[in-house]
Design a binder for these strands. Structure first.
Lengths: 368, 368
DNA sequence: TCCTCTTATGGAAACGTTTCCATAACACAG
DNA sequence: CTGTGTTATGGAAACGTTTCCATAAGAGGA
């Protein structure tokens, strides 16, 4: 047995079997236009017997609409993006649209090629998260054609067609809270700091808060995407900046992993050091201590982005709107008063025997 | 300004601008067949000037291949499925295929309608996770047409074209380990026990282990998809089955949430009660105590499923193969010796003041 | 009886490709 | 000079729809 040995039935086959013209068959199957009762029956029977199913590719060619929305995100397995994709899919499905999904792996080249492919597939709308809003060939390409589109997670003041949180404002809030708890020396630990505009904006917000509230400029640790030897990097960083009493992690996964490492190193959170995350994933509420973080709602952002492109599509007008998503700072057990005199140094100076941890950041990369 | 005010250029436009026939333009742009150097240049210039991009819908119509693979999963935001989707996408992208993704929300009707739509879109292959392998209209529909396809996560002995772990065997192993640690009365806590074949199979495996190793039949708690009042349900369950010393949760998220609730109820894990999860998500390693669980590799399973359908596609033969994915039981701090005499009862009988927890299981459902 | 109006039906064009085939130009061997 | 290739090119069909238009049949009014 081979595939496609029996060609799939077309409307022409149905018409032939029913002994009528194609136009009539189409009218019956689409319930458009008048048909006699007997012809209707014959066509229905023929369609059933042949297992006829319309070909959307024929329809799309004719109608020049594919009923498809394209989406490019850096990673599907990252829970923040997958929640957003779920939001996009839910809204799309409600409107009878299918989701054509690509992941770019945080690579601008793959971003561009994904966008080209999606445009070649003639998606009706496009939602994308680019690495850097201000330097994205993919985004330029999209903008050069008049397709309903919307950025997701990429937000910048005054930038149109976007849907995301104000990372600077949110990170500023984090800095403000750290300051309120008496922290004077804070650190910022980020993944992909150089390439991701989100990680950058969060740093900028934190830095501004530090200036505003009289904190020292934050010490910065950019960790490896592969997550290799995060333990070593983290301990070295802390030894190098022993006055640090608070750490802002660029997202909750990093924050939780840091807490896990610190626990094994017998560093107490928040007594010895405070941790604040970003995103507000549910696991943050289930660890001990609970994670202080900025709570965002990626699912809602995905929905909003989908709503936005659908509005553009139906109004035939390129949206110039930016939907800035809300956020809430959620306090938690991981944020406490700054230690008057940090005892980190002594603790860390002791010889540690840490088992090499299985790193959450490897989860995607190690397997591909 | 309106969309589509300037129609997108077709190869006919390119040919016209270059002053040649369509066939020649096609030859140039596809590097197929012979063309003179000068004509090549003219065509290339015309294509660039017009911003020409091939339409895959025209191509698909002509070639009757869409270079697209369809995928239906219960939920995109569930980390297990999103990891698998990432695997599928990675493999597909390597082969120049795009991913058309739908989520069914664990609803057999939506499963079916998603599959119909994907088939109407003429996907070249189909990968799907159905709610119940043995009662799935969607699966029947797929099987009635000769399309390369593969089940993902749905596994049953002797069932063809599938890719998943042997849930019964894995759950049996969990039961074996619980028995080895001296547990005699265990509980099974599951989400969607009645509808999901995975949750059922895991129960069956556990039950068989209980029979085999002389344990009492497991007490069962099916928790609500909405996760409402999990605290109350859990505590009532434990009060009702006070001899229970070990709990097998149908997945790690449930397990971790249970651990979090127990911690707040001052029940010690594993001293008072042991917990075992399923899936092996990374967060299990970051909580305290670490979660004992069955480690699976959904990313690899996604890749395997994609490989399987691609093999069918290229060999033009419907695969009759089942790729049973491996699993590893990973011990962890949450699994310990059964308490000789459980002190659960006294603890739970005390009036508890638990803050109503934010439930991880709500994460998807509350927002849609 | 003839004309008009409605209802039912089918032919054919168009959507954007690819590819088969025919043609034209030209070189070269006989 | 004719016949035989080779190379470059374009016309046109086909893929599966939808829809415009024409036609045919019948009903009803003059």
């Amino acid at each position: 047995m081979q595939f496609r040995t029996r060609k799939v039935a077309t409307i022409r086959d149905v018409a032939q079997l029913a002994g009528c013209g194609i136009a009539s068959a189409s009218r019956v199957l689409n319930r458009s236009g008048p048909v006699s009762a007997e012809l209707r029956d014959k066509v229905m029977v023929a369609a059933r017997d042949l297992g006829f199913e319309f070909s959307d590719v024929g329809r799309s060619l004719r109608s020049s609409r594919t009923r498809t929305v394209g989406c490019v995100v850096p990673s599907i397995s990252n829970p923040v993006y997958s929640a957003a994709v779920q939001g996009i899919e839910d809204v799309s499905a409600d409107h009878g649209l299918q989701l054509l999904l690509s992941s770019s792996g945080y690579d601008p080249d793959r971003e561009l090629s994904a966008v080209r492919t999606l445009i070649a597939k003639r998606v009706d709308a496009l939602i994308l998260t680019v690495n850097d809003l201000h330097a994205s060939p993919a985004l330029d390409f999209v903008r050069s054609r008049d397709i309903p589109h919307c950025l997701l997670f990429n937000y910048d003041h005054g930038s149109p067609n976007a849907c995301g949180v104000d990372n600077r404002a949110a990170a500023f809030e984090v800095g403000r809270m750290l300051a309120a708890y008496g922290h004077r020396h804070v650190g910022y630990i980020a993944l992909r700091l150089t390439s991701s505009d989100r990680a950058c904006q969060r740093l900028e917000g934190l830095e501004e808060a530090c200036r505003n509230f009289g904190l020292a400029a934050p010490a910065i640790l950019e960790i490896d995407e592969r997550g290799e030897d995060l333990v070593g990097q983290l301990l070295a960083f802390l030894l190098q900046h022993p006055q640090t009493t608070g750490i802002f992690a660029s997202n909750d996964q990093v924050a939780i992993e840091i807490m896990s490492i610190l626990r094994k190193a017998r560093v107490r959170v928040p007594t010895d050091i405070s941790i604040v995350g970003f995103d507000g994933i549910d696991f943050g509420q289930m660890v001990e201590p609970t994670l202080a973080t900025v709570v965002t709602n990626p699912y809602a952002m995905g929905r909003a982005a989908a709503d936005m492109v659908l509005a553009q599509k139906s109004s035939d007008q390129p949206g110039c709107h930016t939907d800035v998503a809300g956020f809430v700072f959620r306090s938690g057990g991981s944020l406490g008063q700054a230690a008057a005199k940090t005892s980190l140094l002594e603790k860390l100076a002791l010889p540690q025997q840490l088992s090499p941890p299985r790193n959450i950041l490897q989860s995607t990369s190690e397997e591909r």
